Amino acid sequence: MDAALIEPPEERRWWQSDQREDTSAVIGLQSGFAVVALGTTWAVFLMLGLMSGGVERTWLYLVMFGAIGVAFGLLLFAPGTPAASWATGGAVIAEVGAAAAFVWAIVPVDRGAMMPFAGATAVIGALFCLRGRVVSGWVSFGLVTVVLGVLGRQRADALHYVTEPQSGNLGILVMMTVFAAIIGPRAEQIFALRRQATRESKALAVRAIRDHELARLDDRVRPLLRRIAAGGALDDAELVHCRLVEAQLRDRIRAPGLDVPAVADAVWTARERNVRVVLLDDRGDRAALSGSEDGDGRLDRARAVVVATLLDSSSGDHVTVRLLPEGRQTFATITVASDGGVTLRELDGADQPV
């Protein structure tokens, strides 16, 4: 019931950072498709540059695109919202280094070799804005412009190194700045609403579980209360029923992690057979770890083992179930004392018998 009401978190791939709540999430930049698209864009720009005939130093051109790839990767995978400072600084350094290599890698002012560099750096500027680092994007743009201007004058005494790539990049950076200013607050609102909906869903799940448990308890307690209120002595069967209800109430307090219908019914049936059952939950935050919170399924599997053990128990047995504190290799223990012998069963972190 609780597992169906609460949706499990999306599994992240090894190459993905933790889920970020920013503009990049709204436009799908955290998906695998974005990784493939950016990787393909990088490869296409590199091939176009090498095929342009304007590359004078191939090794330096490859170094330049290596630095551009580093900037792509840092801005795409960097954790945090906005992107982490170390990743942002690394992307700025990588782009500026690529600009320095670019000037000396191509034939002076060869337009065919300039355009791939211009397109790649435009993508970097867009990524800065999408990752919430608009100011860093402008700082990087300014530093690249200065590097291109200074080294370009030394290389060919021409400003084409600045005007050719940076004129188009300026317009793109302006557009992405406006886009980030409009979409950024909307993204925050979207994720704020999503967090609120998640909290409300969990609250509804908890209330549903509590209502179900109260209804289950009411079915067993109300007849007894009416019988007691009516006066008269209780017969032996009613006294046994009272002791069973009292024990179940004690279980809910001492072992909230085991307070689910399947376990409760198995315990009730076992006690009716004169099996002594003790349930303990010694985990730290039992309220958070019980009931609706079992993301890895360990608790559900432990409950299944407990139910099976109780169903196999016989009259006169003494069964003790204990959920151990967090951080231990053993998750739970089940002790069964029967016919003068004691059997200890331990469940490890995967809820497998040790």
Rank of each mutant, 00 (worst) to 15 (best):
E10T: 15
E10K: 11
E10D: 13
E11T: 15
E11C: 01
R13D: 03
W15C: 01
W15P: 01
E21Y: 13
I27P: 04
G28E: 15
V35Q: 08
V44M: 00
L48Q: 08
Y61M: 11
Y61L: 05
V63G: 03
I68P: 00
F72I: 07
F72L: 03
L74T: 10
L76A: 04
L76F: 10
G80Q: 05
A83R: 10
S85R: 13
A87W: 06
A87R: 12
G90I: 02
I93N: 00
G97S: 06
R111N: 00
R111H: 01
A113R: 00
M114V: 04
I124L: 00
A126V: 12
F128W: 03
F128C: 09
R131E: 02
V134I: 08
V139F: 07
S140V: 09
T145A: 07
T145V: 13
V147K: 00
L151C: 03
Q154R: 07
R155V: 11
L159W: 14
L159P: 02
Y161S: 01
S167K: 02
N169Y: 06
N169V: 08
I172C: 11
L173A: 05
L173R: 03
V178Q: 07
A180C: 02
A181S: 09
I182P: 00
I182S: 00
P185W: 09
R194A: 08
R194E: 06
R195T: 08
R199T: 13
E200M: 06
S201L: 12
L204A: 10
A205S: 09
A205V: 09
D211W: 04
E213Q: 13
D219T: 12
P223W: 11
A229I: 13
G232T: 15
D235Y: 14
A237M: 12
A237S: 14
E238W: 14
L239R: 15
L239K: 15
V240Q: 07
C242L: 09
C242Q: 10
R243D: 10
D251K: 07
R252P: 00
R254V: 13
A255W: 00
P256F: 05
P261Y: 04
A264N: 06
A264I: 14
D265N: 08
W268Q: 06
N274A: 10
V277M: 05
V278R: 06
L279R: 01
G284A: 02
A288S: 02
S292F: 12
E293S: 02
D294Q: 10
G297W: 10
L299M: 07
L299I: 11
R303G: 08
L310F: 10
D312L: 02
D312I: 10
G316H: 09
D317G: 03
D317Q: 13
T320A: 06
V321S: 03
L324E: 11
R328Q: 13
Q329P: 03
T335P: 00
T335L: 08
V336C: 07
V342P: 01
L347W: 02
